[in-house]
Amino acid sequence: MTMANRVIGFGLLILSVYAWLIANAFPSSNGLGPGPDYFPKIAASALGVLSILLIGRKEKQDGAVYAVSGKPAVLLFVTGIIVMMVYVLFVQWLGFTVSSALVTLAWMILMGIRKWTTLIVASVLISAGISYVFEFLLSVPIPHGILY
């Protein structure tokens, strides 16, 4: 965990310096009291100090950080994250119902379900059921695309 703290702390330190420099270009005063730059600079400075403290912190980790280990499992998990990102990026073009069925199908396959009847029935029922409940029963808008 100490190494992870250092990497995270270093990343946050860079972010805080960047945020401070950007904020420094904001107007500094509107006549009475501080201007738009004040709070972002305070927050960036505090984040910088706390990041340095995190870099210097030693912390023991009980057990493994991740539940997946080994290249095939990690690959499956990363694929799952990519599938999620593609889903979110394309949901407005493909439409909520169809893209939700596809992401459900993909995630269930990645998690090890191999029975096709289960895969198809579960993914269609989950996405169609949620779409119906939200759009028709609750009148909550859902994104519609070329495939509904």
């Binding site: 999620m84 889903y87 979110v88 949901v91 909520f96 939700s100 992401v103 459900t104 995630w107 269930m108 998690m111 090890g112 379900i113 579960a122 993914s123 989950i126 996405s127 949620i130 939200f134 909550v140 808008p141 859902i142 994104p143």
Partner: peptide, 17 residues
Amino acid sequence: KMLAPLILILSTIGAYA
């Protein structure tokens, strides 16, 4: 295995709505 995608798509519709 079914709960995880269910949470994801409920979250998506929630954020969009």
